[in-house]
Computed example of a mutant assay.
Amino acid sequence: MVAEKNRIQKVLEDANIKLRSVVSKIDGVSSMRIIHALMEKDDLSREEIAEMTHGRLRSKMDLLVEALDGRVTGHHRFLLKMHLDHIEFLADQI
Rank of each mutant, 00 (worst) to 15 (best):
L79E: 02
I87D: 07
S30I: 07
L57K: 05
M52R: 08
L64R: 09
L12K: 07
V72A: 08
G55D: 10
K10D: 14
K81Y: 03
L12N: 07
L84V: 04
D69N: 15
K18F: 06
R20I: 09
I94T: 12
H75W: 09
L12D: 02
D69S: 14
A3H: 06
F89M: 10
K81Q: 08
K60P: 09
V22M: 12
D85A: 07
S45W: 11
G28E: 07
A50E: 14
E48R: 00
A91F: 11
I34P: 04
M61P: 05
V22S: 07
I17W: 03
H76Q: 08
K60W: 09
T73M: 13
A67W: 10
H36I: 14
R58L: 11
G28R: 06
R58H: 06
Q93H: 11
H36Q: 15
L12P: 07
A37H: 11
I8Q: 03
R56K: 13
I35W: 01
D42H: 10
M82W: 02
F78M: 08
D85Y: 04
E88W: 06
T73E: 01
N16D: 14
D27K: 09
H36C: 02
M1Y: 03
A37W: 13
L68Y: 09
E13G: 10
R77V: 11
D69I: 10
D42M: 04
K81W: 00
D14I: 04
I8P: 12
E13V: 04
A15E: 03
D43S: 11
N16T: 12
R58I: 13
E88V: 15
R33Y: 05
S24G: 02
A15R: 10
R56H: 07
I94P: 03
E13P: 00
L80W: 09
T73G: 08
V22W: 13
G28I: 03
I87A: 01
Q93K: 13
L80K: 01
D62W: 02
V2E: 12
L90N: 07
S45A: 01
N6I: 15
